[in-house]
């Protein structure tokens, strides 16, 4: 009898525990849907007013209440692409160095140091960009670029030290530790057998990397790159300090620009008119959708590679 009662209590306990844990698991799904719903509801006035034109209009006029997302979206995408173009080769270089070249005693400490750098808060990168890197760029680097490369339209402009290119560069520095530690992890998953057989037929180190390691880890690397892209797209602090906050789309990468996150950080507490506010939330919704798509893509690409490199 007592045993039966205990059994019953246990059953109830099990059901409750299971139910509670199920509730919290489902809460992740609910949360995601809720974020979408709230952002959508708050951006409805802007969507109703501007419709699809919101996406292609480049006017951002708070006086006449005409808003278009194009300059912010353009800045978000271009600065992230610049970041990826700079960060990927460097990160792969670091990963190759760590897995194939560094002496044994170096691998651990340098690898750990790079992973630690991935945990530095992004505002530190932004602040450093503003106080240290921007003056350095405008005094030493940009005048040179303008003088010697100025004939290429994208390198035209004034040496402000602040703009699309500097923002992309700071973003690159920020995502380098991330991409390189993930790529190092996938490089390490190449079975030593494969590499050994490469060396066995007389291949050089570079040939083994290019013909064995990279093809074997291709989808993992692409996944890492896209995850890095996801971070760059959504980053606020590293960008806001250095992008220059101008709603003009300029062909010149040295010119000031803006990004969705920078526009939000600059203008959200400021906006008075409901339509202005709603347009800002609509920008947030666009950013959420863009990163969502990019991350889903990354997830499918990494797919087979079950990445266990941590919680970055």
């Amino acid at each position: 009898m007592a045993l039966l009662e205990r059994h019953k209590a246990d059953k109830i306990g099990d059901a409750v525990f299971r139910g509670v844990s199920y509730f919290f698991a489902i809460s992740v799904v609910v949360l995601m849907l809720f974020i979408f719903a709230v952002l959508f509801k708050e951006s409805l006035p802007a969507i109703k007013k501007f419709g699809l034109k919101f996406l292609v209009s480049s006017s951002w006029d708070p006086v006449r209440l005409e808003f278009g997302a194009l300059p912010s979206v353009y800045g978000t995408i271009v600065s992230s692409i610049i970041a990826i173009v700079i960060a990927v080769p460097i990160s792969l270089g670091i990963a190759i160095f760590l897995t194939e070249m560094a002496p044994k005693g170096f691998k651990g400490p340098i690898g750990t140091a790079i992973e630690l750098l991935a945990s530095i808060p992004s505002i530190i990168y932004g602040m450093w960009g503003l106080f240290v890197f921007a003056p350095f760029l405008s005094d030493h680097v940009e005048p040179w670029i303008i003088e010697y490369l100025g004939f290429i339209p994208i390198f035209n402009g004034a040496p402000l030290g602040i703009g699309m290119l500097p923002a992309g560069f700071i973003l690159a520095i920020m995502i380098i530790p991330f991409i390189s530690s993930v790529s190092r992890d996938v490089f390490q998953m190449v079975p030593p057998m494969l590499k050994e057989s490469g060396y066995g037929v007389g291949a050089t180190k570079w040939e083994v990397i290019r013909k064995v390691v990279i093809p074997y880890t291709r989808s993992g690397i692409i996944g890492a790159v896209i995850l890095g892209l996801g971070r760059a797209l959504g980053e606020t602090m590293a960008v806001t300090f250095v992008i220059g906050n101008s709603h003009e789309i300029s062909h010149a990468l040295l010119d000031p620009a803006t990004s969705i996150s920078a526009t939000l950080a600059n203008e959200f507490t400021e906006a008075v008119d409901p339509l202005y506010l709603s347009s800002l939330v609509a920008l947030g919704l666009i950013l959420f959708v863009i990163t969502f798509i990019v991350l889903v893509l990354a997830k499918f690409l990494i797919g087979g590679f079950s990445y266990k490199g941590g919680n970055l």
């Binding site: 006029d61 708070p62 006086v63 006449r64 906050n245 101008s246 709603h247 010119d255 203008e267």
Partner: peptide, 17 residues
């Protein structure tokens, strides 16, 4: 061309926060 307000559509220039 521009009017007045706490933020306007600037005909020229760069923006600082």
């Amino acid at each position: 061309k521009a009017g007045f307000g706490t933020a306007v559509k600037w005909p020229a220039g760069v923006g600082g926060k």
